[in-house]
Simulated assay, not measured.
Amino acid sequence: MTHIVTESCIECKYTDCVEVCPVNCFHEGPNFLVINPEECIDCGVCVSECPAKAIYLEEDLPKNQKQFSKINLELSKKWPIINNSKPHKKDANKWKKIKKKLHLLKYKNE
């Protein structure tokens, strides 16, 4: 089993979760983080560190977030590993309250 980063992370991209990960399974995109499911050891320490409450155990994913299993797998193979926290975006607190952000996901640095 693995943990999955979901829609709530889009445009927030807090990196508190990255700092506590013992296996460096997080990957960073332009406006989103993903977890490599092949590297995640299912420790769960990242879940409580996420201010956007965007990380779920895969089996506990809400139905409307199931597509993020595939998104995490695919993008973790393309994006670089991030293993240190960074300052979050200035408007991250605004974005964490917004729902339905999948259309805003950036797949490439533009």
Rank of each mutant, 00 (worst) to 15 (best):
E59C: 00
P62A: 06
E19Y: 14
L61A: 03
H3A: 02
E28Y: 08
E11F: 02
H3N: 09
L57C: 00
G29D: 04
L75Y: 12
V18I: 13
S48Y: 11
K94Q: 07
C43H: 12
S8G: 03
N93P: 00
F32S: 00
Q67I: 14
Y107K: 14
D16F: 13
N36S: 15
E39C: 05
D60E: 15
A92D: 07
L33E: 01
Q67L: 13
S85F: 14
Q65R: 13
K90R: 15
I55W: 04
L102M: 02
Y14W: 12
I41L: 06
V23I: 11
N24V: 00
T15V: 09
K13P: 00
F68Q: 04
K97S: 08
V47T: 11
A92P: 10
K96S: 01
L104S: 02
K66N: 05
N24I: 01
E49F: 05
N93M: 05
P51Q: 10
V34F: 03
K101V: 00
G44D: 08
H3M: 02
N84W: 08
E110H: 09
Q67T: 09
P62H: 05
E110R: 13
S69I: 10
C46D: 05
N31G: 02
I41N: 09
V20N: 03
T2L: 00
E11W: 04
E38V: 03
E49C: 07
D60K: 15
M1E: 10
V20F: 06
Y107N: 04
K90S: 11
K63T: 07
K94T: 09
K53C: 04
W95T: 00
S69A: 13
E19P: 01
E7N: 14
V45D: 12
K77R: 15
N83H: 15
P87Q: 13
K90D: 11
N24A: 13
E58K: 10
I82A: 08
N84C: 11
P51F: 05
K13Q: 12
N31L: 03
N72L: 07
C46F: 05
I82W: 09
E110C: 04
T15G: 06
K86Q: 15
K96Q: 10
E74R: 15
K77W: 07
K108P: 00
L61D: 03
Y107R: 14
V18N: 02
H88K: 15
V23G: 06
C17Q: 13
K63L: 10
L104D: 01
C25Q: 07
E28H: 07
S76P: 08
E59R: 09
K101Q: 05
W79Y: 13
D60N: 15
Y56M: 01
I55Y: 03
K53D: 10
P62T: 09
D16S: 14
D60G: 04
E110G: 06
K89G: 07
N36K: 08
T15M: 11
N64T: 09
V47L: 08
K94H: 12
M1Q: 08
K108D: 08
C40I: 03
L57H: 15
G44T: 10
K77M: 13
K96P: 01
E110K: 14
H3K: 07
W79P: 02
T6I: 02
I55F: 04
K101Y: 02
V23M: 06
N24R: 11
I10T: 04
I10G: 01
I81K: 15
E49M: 12
S69Y: 04
N24M: 06
S8R: 08
P51R: 10
K106G: 02
P62Q: 06
V23W: 07
L104K: 13
E7M: 03
I10R: 02
K70D: 13
E11H: 11
